[in-house]
């Protein structure tokens, strides 16, 4: 208990410093409103429902995009690792797409699918697919030949062997890729909604900022930060549970 308290001590100090700096007008309290006022604004946003409704939209877009990325990217990576011909065709595309800043695709996805959910889901899917694919690819390539042979000699078909041996072999690296993808999803959901949306966390931050409601804007920013942190923590627990067989 004490160690947990100690771990979060810097956060508490930061919060206190924030409050003090704003209270004593060391920086412009317009640019940095006191944390206590941000908290009040947060409760107002919760009461009028705008935080919940916009948050729900963002989380929906993010989770659908991420889920598609995990399913398709995971399959893609494993298929590339096992089938030479498939690898020859798909790998250059992945290599080409890898360094592209995915935020550059925000206007593109809007042209294709409009300002609604579709363009955000597509963007998150495309961006998150890359680390998942690469993780699955590297993990599956490391799957041991003798495990593949063992499964085959016990009567597993080739497809069955993919599921029983290649997938679990790829799992540790695949799950690391998903963790990166999770962070990417948060980045892209907010930035895409900031630029081209009428709903969501990003939209709310942009709207509140442009109307000068800085206290409320900070409240939304902190909410997103907290959700991102929590999601990563929960994910790590899930990951540990899935990989409990490792020493």
């Amino acid at each position: 208990m004490t160690s947990t308290a100690f771990r979060y001590l810097p956060l508490v100090l930061l919060a206190l410093a924030w409050e003090a700096v704003a209270r004593f007008n060391i920086v412009d309290s317009q640019a940095l409103p006191p944390l206590s006022k941000v908290a009040v604004a947060w409760f107002d946003l919760m009461r009028d429902g705008s935080l919940v409704s916009n948050g729900a939209v963002s989380l929906y877009r993010g989770s659908v995009g991420l889920l598609l990325a995990i399913l398709i990217g995971g399959g893609l990576g494993m298929a590339m690792a096992r089938w030479r011909l498939f690898d020859v065709f798909v790998n250059p595309l992945v290599q080409l797409f890898y360094p592209l800043p995915k935020s550059a695709l925000i206007p593109v996805t809007v042209i294709w699918l409009g300002f609604g959910d579709g363009s955000k889901i597509l963007l998150i899917f495309l961006a998150c697919m890359i680390p998942v694919t690469i993780g699955a690819y590297n993990g599956a390539r490391g799957s041991e030949q003798v495990l593949v042979w063992s499964a085959r000699s016990m009567g597993a078909s080739r497809m069955r062997m993919m599921w029983d041996v290649v997938m679990p072999s790829a799992l540790p690296e695949l799950l690391n890729g998903v963790r990166t993808a999770l962070a990417l999803a948060f980045i892209l959901i907010v930035s895409s909604e900031l630029i081209a949306s009428q709903q969501g966390f990003g939209y709310l931050i942009g709207y509140l900022g442009s109307t000068g409601a800085y206290e409320a804007m900070y409240a939304v920013v902190l909410t997103v930060a907290f959700l991102g942190f929590t999601a990563d923590r929960v994910y790590q627990v899930i990951m540990q549970w899935l990989l409990q067989w490792r020493e």
Binding site: W149, A151, S153, G155, D164, V165, W245, R246
Partner: peptide, 28 residues
């Protein structure tokens, strides 16, 4: 092709590390 009429035991065991002892024995 490989088949269950010929069982194999490898030098480095080749157990499925994500399966328990029971899970490994059950697999075949």
């Amino acid at each position: 092709a490989p088949g269950p009429d010929r069982g194999i035991v490898f030098q480095h065991f080749a157990l499925f590390p994500w399966k328990t002892v029971r899970g490994n024995v059950l697999y075949g």
